[in-house]
Computed example of a mutant assay.
Amino acid sequence: MSLVSLPNLKDLIDSISRERNLPKHAVENALREALLKGYERFRRTQRLAEGVHFEEDYFDNFDVELDIEYEDEQGFRVLATKTIVEEVTSADHQIALAEVLEVAPEAQVGDTVVLDVTPEQRDFGRMAAIQTKQVLAQKLRDQQRKLIQEEFQDLEGTILMATVQRFERQSVIMTISSGTGQPEVEAELLKRDQLPNDNYRPNSKFRVVLKRVSEGSHRGPQLLVSRADAALVVELFSNEVPEIEDEIVRIVAVAREANPPSRSVGPRTKIAVDTAERDVDPVGACIGARGSRIQVVVNELRGEKIDVIRYSLDPATYIANALSPARVDEVRLMNPEERQAHVLVPEDQLSLAIGKEGQNVRLAARLTGWKIDIKDTAKYDHAEE
């Protein structure tokens, strides 16, 4: 059988496998696909003058076989599966019965045979070689992205330790590990997913939540991580509070403003918790003795303010709790269908209930799902409203 010689092919495959952290079979598959594309380019050029029309599946019956067993004869060959016919109408897909009968007397029309169609080394031209090189680079990238996707797709929403590598525009490029013993891979922390109080120095480490594993062949890291996502707060509390891990306490809702619209307002989170156990205080469980548990979360989030409030099935009670630390006199559910409520507070509690630049009431509204209007109790007209 013919062979296009590629000296040291086995060493090349081993080298690419090490450099790109890919299994050897993945590199071999990528190389076969690339060489097949190079052969397609060669064959198209060869038959251009004949006016042959190439359908999308024209080359589906061709395959490439790598030969790396012997050191002195390494390379590849091209094989074509052809159908036996009485009269050939497509030389790339068919072979005449008469020709096959010379070597296989038992052959019949409709049978298929595999033929060596490897071109001469000198005929496999420069353009075909360039095509092969370009396709190989792309196929190797595709293989890497596929392996990363398989490795991390089940870890979306979980916390991973990340190490800062560099800045690219406004994004921070970090490396993370899946914990399965595989090498670290790059992940991108977008500007909107960064915390204002973080200092992203090279080699510094941060806990991040794996936000998304992208598919496709777009440029840049395919893993997106976040420090601003509410899921990070949930995971941090789950790690620190055994009652959450044991499902004694559950997190019902989280509203987070990690990047407030104004620099004069700091990051803040409200988290609603509940329990079915009568003798368990879910808020106290999350705060811990002398604030020990919540302080770990606050420290990880670089001083972010966190309000842990008790969830209630009663909307009025839930809304009042959500406005903590403000003291509420009354909650009036004005339009339950459209979820609109008036909240009455003493005059000295107005600014606390609303919060700096409206942050407290804004987060309470997001946490409860109600539109909340803060009113001064002394000036509220029950009859008019």
Results as ranks from 00 to 15, higher is better:
Y380I: 04
F152R: 12
E69C: 02
E247V: 12
D376W: 00
K375G: 04
I372E: 03
T180E: 15
S214G: 03
V52P: 08
S177Y: 09
R166H: 03
G220T: 02
K211N: 07
E243P: 14
D274M: 09
I271Q: 06
L236P: 06
R212Y: 07
Y380H: 05
L48T: 14
K375I: 00
S204F: 01
M174W: 04
Q165D: 11
F42R: 08
M127S: 11
T163P: 02
D92S: 04
S204Y: 01
P325N: 03
I271R: 06
G266V: 10
I68A: 00
T89I: 06
Q143G: 11
E150P: 03
V164D: 03
D123R: 12
L97E: 04
Y39R: 02
D229M: 00
A364H: 13
N61V: 01
V78Y: 01
V27S: 14
F152I: 06
E300T: 10
K375S: 05
P346G: 03
L3T: 00
P336F: 03
L363W: 07
E87V: 14
K270E: 10
V27Q: 10
Q144L: 12
T81K: 15
L195P: 07
D92K: 00
E247Y: 10
P315W: 12
R339N: 04
T132H: 11
T317Q: 14
E150D: 12
M334D: 10
D11R: 05
L352K: 02
R44I: 15
R219A: 12
K37M: 12
N203A: 15
S351E: 05
D57N: 10
E247N: 15
T317K: 09
F206L: 04
R290T: 09
V213M: 01
M334E: 11
E184R: 15
I294F: 14
N8E: 06
R207P: 07
A353R: 01
T269S: 15
A98Q: 15
Q121L: 15
S178A: 15
I354D: 02
D246Y: 13
A289C: 06
P105N: 03
A129M: 02
G181P: 02
S214W: 02
W370A: 07
G303S: 05
F54N: 07
E151L: 05
Q46H: 15
K24T: 09
E99I: 05
G288V: 01
D198N: 11
R293S: 07
Q222A: 06
K270L: 10
S90N: 14
L79T: 13
L31F: 07
T163G: 07
V345S: 00
V4Y: 00
D376H: 03
S177T: 15
I148V: 13
T275S: 14
A80V: 13
A231E: 09
A129N: 06
E330V: 01
Q131F: 08
I130V: 08
Q46T: 15
L115C: 13
S226F: 02
P221M: 00
R219F: 06
L190H: 10
R293V: 11
A107E: 11
V308G: 02
V308D: 02
Q165N: 09
I248W: 09
T112R: 13
L115Y: 11
L350P: 00
L101T: 13
I294N: 14
N239L: 10
G179C: 13
I130Q: 06
R141Q: 14
T45F: 13
Y58A: 02
F124I: 03
L140G: 08
A383Y: 13
V103N: 08
N61E: 00
E151M: 05
E243R: 11
